Simulated scan of single mutants.
Amino acid sequence: MGAFRIVLRFRHSDLFRIQTNSGHSGSWAGAHPEIVSCANKFWWPAGTKWEDRLASEPGTGQLNPLHPKTFGVMINVLENVASIFPENFFHSGGDEILPACWKSDSLIQSFLSTGGTLSEVLEKFINFVFPFIVALDKTAIYWEDVILDNEIKVDPSYLYPEYTIFQSWKNGTESTKKIVQAGYRVIVSSSDYYYLDCGHGGFLGNDSLYDQPPEIQKAAGGGSWCSPFKTWQTVYNYDITEGLTEEEKELVLGGEVALWSEQADGTVLDARLWPRTSAMAEALWSGNRDETGKKRYAEATDRLNEWRHRMVNRGIGAEPIQPLWCLQNPGMCNTVHAYNSGDDEENVTLSTGSVGSKGFADSS
């Protein structure tokens, strides 16, 4: 029902807990099935379009803010969690609320038939939960969908910036820009850069994509909606404040990598997290550019390589970023050529950036 999250900020880290969520709430039906819409239904019914799915992946269920018991249950949960966890932040979710799920609920159908909207249903949820979180002397965190979704969203006036933080995960810096322009603080978790579960294929048991030629599978991201795999270089090179004014940058609290557990458990946890999370830590705490403004992933390669071996020596199963031979032969695994999208080897050009300390082409 909840998950611990560590957010790497520019100077320190914070721990907070996701607990309440209008979407992704199927587990609540185990104890209170009456307050959960479309619980335990097939996620994408046969004969329906993608936009009419009940969930974005198997496992359905969204809390129904219109059921008379919903908020009584939530009060008990909120008070219980607040008494156990002293953190100043409380993540209240709000991502991927799908219209078809709520529309399948008879209570919500009645509300819509009188002229109500699904955004108003979400507003009822926010208007109850948000003041309660603030009354507990905590800052509420919501996913960006709450104010940026195309179909179901609330007016930002319902959420006071001094008590609200948003977490971005879609559209890269575009979403971050919209959030800070609205006056809110933001935690950046772009799925294009910080989703560590991406690039391992899909988990649907009978996906016909995998019966297609390799070129079609590749074009479809190999079955992973957020392909490709996010390499440590991709994580390290992401500038989370790109395109923001100096004033807007002050509202960016930091970033969070996400490792969703559809295809990850304790057996692969260390390797999926490390050392890619370490790459984000250095980029956010120390910056990913040198004093001249050049990206410094060249020298970071050496540091991260050594750090990875330290982690392994301490019993952490961090994945290797280079063969051991590279560590034994400094500079021999680098390149002095910049990336070129052409297939002709003759078209490969030397980098116009600085060359790293061991010969790796470094660009701005």
Rank of each mutant, 00 (worst) to 15 (best):
I6H: 13
I6W: 08
V7G: 00
R9T: 14
R11A: 05
D14I: 14
D14T: 14
N21G: 15
H24R: 06
S25A: 15
A31H: 10
H32R: 11
K41I: 00
W43L: 01
P45K: 08
A46C: 03
G47P: 04
W50L: 14
R53I: 01
R53A: 12
A55F: 08
S56W: 08
E57Q: 15
Q62A: 14
Q62P: 00
H67E: 05
P68R: 15
T70K: 02
F71P: 05
G72D: 13
V73Y: 12
N76I: 03
E79V: 04
N80S: 14
V81E: 13
A82T: 15
F85A: 06
F85G: 00
E87L: 01
G94Y: 05
G94L: 06
G94N: 09
P99R: 10
I108R: 02
I108C: 06
F111M: 10
L112V: 04
G115Q: 09
T117R: 11
S119M: 05
E120H: 12
E120I: 06
V121F: 00
K124A: 15
F125G: 01
F128Y: 15
P131G: 14
I133D: 05
A135K: 14
D137I: 04
T139P: 03
T139S: 07
Y142R: 07
W143V: 10
E144L: 12
N150Y: 07
E151H: 05
V154T: 11
N171D: 11
T173F: 00
K177A: 11
Y184F: 12
R185H: 09
D197F: 04
G199S: 10
H200Q: 12
H200C: 04
G201I: 06
G201C: 06
N206F: 12
L209A: 07
Y210S: 11
D211I: 07
G221H: 03
G221N: 06
W225H: 12
W225C: 08
F229E: 05
F229M: 01
Q233L: 10
T234G: 01
V235Q: 04
G243D: 08
E246I: 03
E248N: 09
K249L: 04
L251I: 08
G255W: 01
E256T: 03
S261T: 12
T267V: 02
D270H: 10
A271Y: 01
R272N: 03
P275D: 07
R276N: 04
T277C: 02
M280F: 08
M280A: 09
A281P: 00
A283Q: 00
L284S: 00
G287F: 03
R289S: 00
T292C: 01
Y297I: 05
A300F: 15
L304T: 03
N305Y: 15
N305A: 13
H309Y: 14
R310S: 07
M311R: 09
M311I: 13
G315T: 14
I316G: 13
E319L: 13
P320D: 07
I321E: 13
W325D: 14
W325V: 12
L327Q: 13
Q328C: 06
Q328D: 13
N329K: 13
P330A: 08
N334E: 13
H337K: 09
A338G: 15
Y339T: 07
D343N: 14
D343P: 01
D344T: 10
E346H: 10
V348Y: 10
L350M: 07
L350D: 06
S351E: 01
G353I: 08
A361N: 02
